[in-house]
């Protein structure tokens, strides 16, 4: 009985949300024709804050999305802690345990040989942070221009993903240095290689380290941006064609794209975490 009631409420909420969005779109039909996809990803300060040097600390919608991500994670952490107090595991707790063991056994356990306990918190947090940010991006929130509903996600911004990738980059070399001492840098080139080739390999490795950082950031950013851009294109096309038939067909297609985006959101979080684990593990257990 409770479950059915909850389902009905969820259904009502979805209908209400759809109605709000519909009214929002319909109220100024003339404006909607000027649909610029790039604008969806531009950041305008909501609250102006002074910049410290080159760092402009204004609150933009990306910052709000980041806060929301952190807030959702904190709420879930508190719920987990509360559910652990009960003797018998609840459904929620079993689900959280599944996610936890996915991070623990599926990512860290599958990739890392040593230093699992040390690096698990960082890698798992990265996984859950990216996952939550990606999934939050698929919920329409009234943070677009003129407080319209729109899709945006913090991870569709290169500087957010770059900061996350920078964490992995820094932690990778920190872990390598702590584990292997100064020999960590020497071990970048195989000791068996002939002299000149050795230096060349070392340089290539150094460049690849930087590229790892860039690719880690760009992969996540481009995936989320591309996904949201495709969704935006489908919504925009319905407005451009000015036809109900096209709108219905495109909405149907966008539902499929949306489901694929949920999958992508999960996969990209997984890949980000697993590559972080691979890099850190590679720095810990170096080949000589």
């Amino acid at each position: 009985m409770m479950k059915r009631k909850r389902l009905i409420w969820a259904f009502v909420a979805i209908i209400a949300l759809a109605a709000v969005i519909g009214i929002d779109v319909l109220k100024e039909p003339g404006q909607a024709e000027e649909f610029e996809i790039a604008e969806e990803f531009e950041l305008h300060p909501i609250i102006e804050l002074p910049s410290i040097g080159p760092f402009d600390l204004s609150i933009t919608k990306a910052v709000v999305y980041l806060w929301l991500t952190a807030a959702v994670l904190i709420v879930f952490a508190l719920l987990v802690r509360r559910s652990l107090k009960r003797e018998t595991p609840s459904r929620f707790r079993v689900m959280m345990e599944l996610l936890y063991s996915l991070a623990h056994d599926g990512i860290v356990g599958a990739v890392m040989k040593s230093g699992r306990a040390t690096w698990f918190p960082y890698i798992a947090s990265a996984f859950f942070f990216v996952l939550t940010a990606n999934l939050l991006g698929l919920i329409p929130l009234p943070l677009a221009e003129h407080n319209q509903f729109g899709f945006y996600t913090a991870t569709a911004n290169l500087y957010v993903t770059l900061a996350l990738a920078l964490c992995t980059f820094v932690f990778t070399h920190y872990a390598g240095l702590r584990q292997n001492g100064p020999r960590y840098f020497v071990n970048w080139a195989p000791s068996s290689a002939p002299p000149v080739l050795k230096q060349l390999i070392w340089v290539i490795h150094a460049v690849s380290e930087v590229f790892r950082l860039v690719s880690l950031a760009v992969r996540l950013f481009a995936n989320m941006l591309a996904g949201h851009a495709i969704l935006a294109v489908f919504f925009a096309m319905a407005l451009i064609f000015q036809s109900y038939l096209a709108a219905v067909v495109l909405q149907g297609a966008s539902v499929l794209i949306y489901m694929f985006e949920i999958f992508v959101a999960f996969i990209q979080a997984f890949i980000f975490a697993i590559l972080s684990a691979v890099y850190i593990s590679g720095a810990l257990d170096q080949e000589h």
Binding site: S58, T60, F76
Partner: peptide, 24 residues
């Protein structure tokens, strides 16, 4: 937007701390 990187690091740091201490 380098300012966003600062925000990301702050929120991510908070998330890591909270998740590690309260959940993991």
């Amino acid at each position: 937007e380098p300012g966003l990187m600062i925000w990301t690091l702050i929120t991510f740091g908070v998330a890591v701390l909270v998740l590690t201490l309260l959940a993991f």
